[in-house]
Amino acid sequence: MSVTHSLDRATVADAVKRVVIAESRLSIDPTVISESEPLVGELLRVNSLGFVGMLVRIEDTLDVTLPDDLFVGRAFTVVGDLIDVVIAGAEANR
């Protein structure tokens, strides 16, 4: 299966922010999260054990299929890192 439409960064950013907010068990507006927000910090608490749920949710939201090993062997520090890798993964599967 391949991606059938292009993704703009704002759309991906919104999907990623929504999922990291849910994963951090927060109830806040995605617009208050910046791309430089740490994934593990005062606000967000995202860990790699939650990646399966995050990926399936992002795939559904964006209507894309991402590589199964998208997050394997990569280090993520801030929200923008996740956005970058999702865009790259979607492009790779086009």
């Binding site: 999922v19 849910a22 994963e23 939650g50 399966v52 749920g53 399936v56 949710r57 559904d60």
Partner: peptide, 24 residues
Amino acid sequence: GSPSLIDYCRTSGALPLIASGGGV
């Protein structure tokens, strides 16, 4: 497990669910 996983199972599948959500 994680909130995203449970949320996905709850909303995307067609299976009856015994779900344990997070505890706020």
